[in-house]
């Protein structure tokens, strides 16, 4: 696990998107969305910004450092 916590699943559910739909919006594979949600893969700044925009929130809301 990475040192990065995220609320992707919560925000994605709030937006009514499936992993595949979110993947299409940010142009990555569904598996990448899955591994980011599960904290297995740490996204780049660019992907984090794209995810935040697609979920209509901010990067800080979506990702937090594990304390």
């Amino acid at each position: 696990m990475s040192g990065l916590a995220n609320r992707m699943r919560e925000y994605r559910a709030r937006a009514g998107l499936t992993q595949a739909a979110l993947a299409d919006r940010v142009e990555v594979s569904r598996k990448t969305i899955n591994t980011v949600e599960n904290g297995v893969f740490v996204p780049s700044t660019i992907l984090a910004l794209k995810l935040a925009a697609a979920l209509e929130t901010t990067v800080e809301e979506l990702f937090q450092l594990n304390s």
């Binding site: 990555v28 594979s29 780049s44």
Partner: peptide, 11 residues
């Protein structure tokens, strides 16, 4: 091809 070569695949 674009999504199959995303940043996780590149890594």
């Amino acid at each position: 091809a674009k999504t199959a070569n995303d940043e996780q695949v590149a890594l």
